[in-house]
């Protein structure tokens, strides 16, 4: 028997494909796949939301308060005044199927929430910051816009869809991070569109009540002046439109609709 000296043969056990090519195919392909899955989930959620009538929603959430999510305060002296503004704004939406309730949450961050069952929550931080009734009216009207578009239910439905999606792919480990990133970004884009739609409806209500839309975006200008300016990337990641863009959009909508942006504003005396 003869031993033939030779080196091991190459290309049998190791693929000669460049690792970056495999990485690119996997990342792009899976991102695409995840985006499609997420968009279908959003579509299904929207179908379900439309199928749930406001009456059914009210029945499910009657007597429920969002005490679990926010810390509610029931002795804020400003609550009655805010509820009064809400009541007047509401008349601009006569066929509203909701019986709205206004609650105040103890939080320094200025914020307002639309909660299932016709509950609007405003934070003490928001009440501290608003400068006039007109500013407050637009914030409340914006939340009414969310109710009209059923965004509050969509939000919950999408949260559930995201949780299911996460549970499904985290079983496969490594892909979970990229899946979540794609799903999250997909949802945020939707969320920004919803905010813009709610802004426009809110502006209509303010115009109907006051006959002008002066001070409507004043509150956002206040926020913009205090917040740091986000970069392009941060704007893409954000759930709400960039405050500057948002003010611009609201302004344009008011101008295109021919509404007066000047008028007598009502001061808040609290």
């Amino acid at each position: 028997m003869r031993y033939v000296p030779r080196s091991p043969r190459e290309g049998i056990n190791v693929s000669d494909e460049h690792p970056l090519k495999e990485a690119a195919v996997l990342v792009v392909g899976l991102s695409f796949l995840f985006a499609i899955v997420m968009l279908s989930l959003v579509f299904i959620v929207d179908l379900v939301v439309v199928a749930v009538s406001p009456e059914t929603e009210a029945r499910i959430f009657s007597g429920w308060t969002p005490g679990g999510i926010v810390e509610l305060v029931d002795d804020d002296s400003r609550q009655r005044a805010v509820a009064g503004v809400l009541q007047r704004i509401e008349t601009g939406w006569p066929d509203s199927p909701y019986d709205f309730r206004l609650l105040v949450a103890d939080d320094d961050e200025p914020n307002a929430l639309a909660v299932p069952g016709g509950v609007i929550v405003v934070t003490t931080g928001l009440l501290d910051k608003v400068g006039s009734e007109n500013e407050l009216a637009f914030v409340l009207a914006h939340e009414l816009g969310h109710f009209r578009n059923r965004d509050h239910l969509r939000g919950i439905g999408r949260g559930v869809a995201l949780a299911i999606f996460y549970a499904a792919i985290s079983g496969g480990s490594g892909g979970a991070d990229i899946g979540i990133a794609v799903a999250d970004l997909t949802l945020r884009q939707f969320s920004r569109d919803q905010e813009a739609a709610a802004d426009r409806f809110g502006l209509e209500l303010v115009q109907a009540e006051y006959g002008h839309v002066a001070d409507s975006w004043r509150f956002f200008e206040r926020l913009r002046d205090t917040e740091a300016q986000p970069g392009i990337m941060a704007a893409y990641l954000s759930t709400h439109p960039d405050t500057g863009d948002r003010i611009e959009d609201i302004r344009r909508y008011a101008r295109d609709s021919g509404w007066s942006t000047v008028g007598r504003t009502t001061p808040l005396d609290w």
Binding site: P19, E22, L26, G29, L30, G172, S173, G174, G175
Partner: peptide
């Protein structure tokens, strides 16, 4: 880390 991440993605499909 790179090989681990790519293999994790591969494990999905």
């Amino acid at each position: 880390y790179f090989k681990r991440v790519i293999a994790g993605l591969r494990a999905l499909v």
